[in-house]
């Protein structure tokens, strides 16, 4: 049983090292049409210098809506579980 664990650990380490060695380089995306459009037009269309914020709140607003919903559900769940305070 111990040797199975050691073997699985070694296989995982080898896989991760191989992936890190063969990884696609940073800053060179495969397809960059959308990125170029955002960088060229975000200042004029959304009026914001920070392109990330204009993507998060304007172009991809539904993602932020989903994130806000997830946070609301998490807070409601925590408030339900930890409701009793004994005070």
């Amino acid at each position: 049983m111990k040797w199975i664990k050691v073997g699985a650990f070694l296989v995982m380490v080898g896989f991760l090292v191989g992936v890190a060695a063969w990884m696609h380089p940073f800053g060179v995306p495969w397809a960059s049409e959308m990125d170029d459009y955002f960088i060229a037009n975000a200042q004029v269309e959304a009026g914001a210098n920070n392109v990330v914020t204009s993507v998060v709140f304007d172009y991809r607003g539904f993602d932020t809506l989903g994130e806000a919903t997830v946070l609301l559900c998490a807070v409601v769940g925590v408030a339900l579980v930890l409701r009793r305070t004994r005070r």
Binding site: Q43, V44, A46, T53
Partner: peptide, 17 residues
Amino acid sequence: PVPPGPNPGFLNTGGTL
């Protein structure tokens, strides 16, 4: 309206952002 290109940044921009 924001001038395109590098600018110092104006607080009164961004619309609903």
